[in-house]
Design a protein around this nucleic acid. Structure first.
Length: 299
DNA sequence: TGCAGTGTTGCTTC
DNA sequence: CGAAGCAACACTGC
C-alpha cells in the first residue's frame, strides 16, 4: 500500500493527533510475528508508560520517538495501516478493547470501524487522553520494532537519499543514474539508490517524464534524466498534497481516503485511454512488478 | 473453481 | 558484483 506520500500522510496525522500522549498499554495483539524486536514479552513490558515525543518518516519507515530514548519503528509493507479512534465505552470490555479475530465487536460501531479495510486488526495500543491506536494488516508483512536510537544509522546504511529535500539535486541524481545499469524503473524502485518511491509513483514519474520504464538507465539522454528528476519531485509533492493514493485500502489515521488516485495517469489503467494522447495504456512486467505506460507518450 | 495479481522487501541463486 | 526469482500472507477478481 504505502509509498513515501502515504507514509508521510500517516506521519503528519500521527504528529497532529498523538504527539504528547503516553502509551498506557499494548492491549491487543493477534500476530506476535509483527513484532520483530525485542521479544514479545519484553516489547509489551517496555512500551508501557512511554511518552510520544515526535513522529518522523525515513523512506517508508514510520519512526515514533518515545521517552527514555526509544523509537517505535514501523514498516507498513503492503497492507499495514493505523487507525486512531476515541476509546468509546462501546469498544471496551473490562478494560479490554473488544476485538475478535481482528474484527471489532459492538453494535454501535462507527463507520470507519465497519469499513472492511479495518477488519484486520493485529495490534492495539491504549493511549492517554482516551485514545486507541490500532494497527491493521491483512497480509501481515508489516514490521514493528522497539529500538534504541542507534537503529537510525542501521536503516540509513541500507537506504539511498530522500528524493524531496533540496540536497537531492540534479547533480546527485545524475550520479545515481550514471552508476546504474538496469531498467530505469528498477532503478527508481531500488531503495538503496533513492528511498521512498514504490510501484505506483515509479510508473507515474516515468509517464510524466515521457520515458519508457524498460529503458536501460545508461541509455538515457541528459534531457531525459533531467525530466525524470523534475518528475520525481512533482509527482511525489502532488501526491503528498493530495494526502496519498487510496487505490484500494489506503486510509489516513483518521480513516479518511487520500485523493491522489484521481491524479494518476497510467497506474492500473491498463487498456484505458491515455489522458494525454488518447492511445491505450500498456501493461508489462519489470522486476516482477506490474508496469504501466503509454507507448505513444513515452519514448 | 483456480489462478494471476496486489501498493514491499530481503534472501537465495545464477 | 548485479540482476532475477521467489517467499512471506491473505484476499479479490477475472
Amino acid at each position: 500500500m504505502p509509498e513515501l506520500p502515504e507514509v508521510q500522510t500517516v506521519v503528519d496525522g500521527l504528529n497532529k493527533k498523538i504527539k504528547g500522549k503516553t502509551i498506557l498499554s499494548l492491549c491487543y495483539c493477534d500476530a506476535k510475528k509483527l513484532i520483530r524486536e525485542p521479544s514479545f514479552g519484553k516489547f509489551e513490558k517496555e512500551i508501557k508508560n512511554r511518552k510520544i515525543e515526535k513522529v518522523e518518516r525515513r523512506a517508508k519507515n514510520i519512526l515514533i520517538f518515545l521517552s527514555g530514548e526509544k523509537i517505535l519503528a514501523i514498516h507498513l509493507k503492503m497492507t499495514g495501516h493505523f487507525i486512531l479512534i476515541k476509546n468509546e465505552k462501546s469498544l471496551q470490555y473490562g478494560g479490554q478493547v473488544k476485538i475478535k479475530n481482528g474484527k471489532w465487536i459492538g453494535e454501535d460501531l462507527s463507520e470507519e470501524l465497519r469499513d472492511p479495510k479495518n477488519q484486520f486488526i493485529r495490534l492495539v495500543f491504549e493511549l492517554s487522553g482516551g485514545l486507541i491506536l490500532a494497527y491493521s494488516d491483512l497480509r501481515k508483512f508489516g514490521e514493528i520494532r522497539l529500538v534504541n536510537h542507534s537503529y537510525l544509522s542501521s536503516i540509513d546504511s541500507k537506504l539511498g537519499p530522500e528524493p524531496l529535500p533540496q540536497k537531492f539535486d540534479l547533480n546527485l541524481f545524475r550520479d545515481i543514474i550514471g552508476a546504474s545499469k538496469g531498467k530505469i524503473k528498477a532503478v527508481l524502485l531500488d531503495q538503496k539508490r533513492i528511498s521512498g518511491i514504490g510501484n505506483i509513483y515509479a510508473d507515474e514519474i516515468l509517464f510524466e517524464a515521457g520515458v519508457r520504464p524498460q529503458r536501460p538507465a545508461n541509455s538515457l539522454s541528459k534531457k531525459e534524466i533531467e525530466r525524470i528528476f523534475y518528475a520525481i519531485k512533482n509527482v511525489l509533492k502532488r501526491a503528498i498534497d493530495n494526502r496519498g493514493t487510496s487505490d484500494s485500502d489506503f486510509r489516513d489515521v483518521e480513516g479518511k481516503r487520500g485523493n491522489n488516485q484521481n491524479s494518476l495517469f497510467v497506474y492500473r489503467r491498463t487498456g484505458k485511454e491515455c489522458f494525454k494522447c488518447g492511445g491505450k495504456v500498456k501493461r508489462i512486467k519489470i522486476s516482477q512488478r506490474g508496469t504501466h505506460y503509454c507507448e505513444n507518450c513515452q519514448k
